[in-house]
Amino acid sequence: MRPIIGITSYVVPATWGVWHDLPTALIPNDYVAAVEQAGGRAVIIPPDGRDPDVLRVLDGLLLAGGPDVEPVRYGAEPEPLTETRADRDAGEFPLVRRALELDLPILGVCRGMQVLAVAAGGTLHQHLPDVLGHERHRPAPGIYGEHEARFEGGSMIAKLMGDDVGVHCYHHQGVADPGTLTVTGRAEDGLAEAVEDPDRRFVLGVQWHPEVVRDRRLFGALVEAAS
């Protein structure tokens, strides 16, 4: 039996066929395909703030990309360009907290890394161009920024990535303070690109989008940790 990997989902007004702007739980198929190609069984977890009991049947948790985290969750006021979804946060934070208690393997992608950092007591930059003075992490709508990351020697992410350190980014927020996590990768401008929790079996957050290339190094590591 394959390990079951729960993928957190978006809820957006979606349009297809004859249907227009129907509120829909969805996840880009790249995530599902990346999990399945790595040997896992993907299920999609629509947000539901009642309880995190669904973790009972999951072997691993994949925190997908998505909207900005509510700044109140790290003690800040929302800035003008911050766009949040309270239902997504209300569903995801209890999942993450319980998953950390259970030491369930977790991979956080983009927003998912930011959720991990905030759950660990950290904080976010709300709009990177204001902090970094450039837009290379999200060059234009729908265009991924491509750059090379530098990883801490001896870290899990350094071992997984090896010599091929090119990454695809698309985000306007970033981790300012990783809380109790360790920053193990950075972009050339110093921004945190990877976080880990060395005290747990497998807790990894990456600021880039490994699912667009279905990166077996990362999804394989999640599935293996979940097996």
Partner: peptide, 24 residues
Amino acid sequence: TAYAQQVHYGNNDVMAGMLPMTYV
């Protein structure tokens, strides 16, 4: 059971695993 469907939302046009929230 979910759809695997080419879907449009915001500025995105992607193949997605999805289900209308009415079911959920």
